[in-house]
């Protein structure tokens, strides 16, 4: 593995150093949802050198997703996981991606993310956020969630909350999506970038 880095990975090695990159490349990250948070987290993490992903989403791309999700006009109508695979491979062609188009529920969450060291909660709906965080709160997996990222005011309120050693939540914890508070690119991107950075920091420094 060490000897067959592509040119992007060689460049990353120069940026990070071989030790850091080796840690990054050993981790498997599960992403629950490939919408605004999930697609943007995936991009940030691929750019940071992560290679192994399990990404799950049941949905297809709609025009209304283009305001914040990492998809393009000509991909509308296609399954998100399929389009995201293409978009991520366009950054690094040597990724190990397990993309799965299905709905995540309490009964299948364990088998879906079994091999993952780290899980990103990237759902849209509050009750699914709760479901997956509750499922892993007492596990040995490192979980990064987001809650309270709607609208456009006070982006500095999107804070990193350390709930437990293995659980972080990014957001203001209050601003849920509504007619008055739609999800928009800047705050969704900030949240996804912070989720990704928590993971990068955790993997490189060990906590």
């Amino acid at each position: 593995m060490e000897n067959d880095k592509n040119r992007f990975e060689e460049a990353l090695c120069n940026t990070f150093g071989a030790d850091h990159l080796s840690k990054i490349q050993q981790v498997t990250i599960g992403i629950a949802g490939a919408g605004g948070l999930g697609s943007n987290c995936a991009v940030n993490l691929v750019r940071s050198g992560f290679q192994h992903f399990v990404i799950v989403d049941f949905d297809v791309i709609d025009y209304s997703n283009l305001n914040r999700q990492f998809y393009f006009y000509n991909q509308v109508g296609r399954p998100k996981v399929e389009a995201l695979r293409e978009n991520l491979l366009a950054i690094n062609p040597d990724l190990h991606l397990e993309m799965s188009q299905q709905k995540i529920e309490e009964h299948n969450v364990d088998s879906i993310f079994q091999k993952c060291d780290i899980i990103i909660e990237a759902f849209d709906q509050a009750r699914y956020k709760k479901m997956i965080v509750e499922h892993y709160i007492n596990s040995d997996k490192f979980v990064v969630s987001a809650s309270g990222i709607a609208g456009w005011s006070n982006s500095d309120d999107l804070k990193t909350h350390k709930i437990k050693d293995n659980l972080y939540i990014v957001g203001d914890l209050l601003s849920g999506v509504s007619k008055e508070l739609p999800p928009c690119a800047p705050k969704v991107n900030i949240a996804a970038a912070k989720q990704s950075n928590i993971i990068l920091n955790y993997v490189v420094t060990g906590g």
Binding site: G33, A126, A146, A150, I169, L173, L174, G176, L181
Partner: peptide
């Protein structure tokens, strides 16, 4: 109590 709100 940890409360989640929608959006993603």
């Amino acid at each position: 109590v940890l409360n989640f709100v929608g959006g993603g």
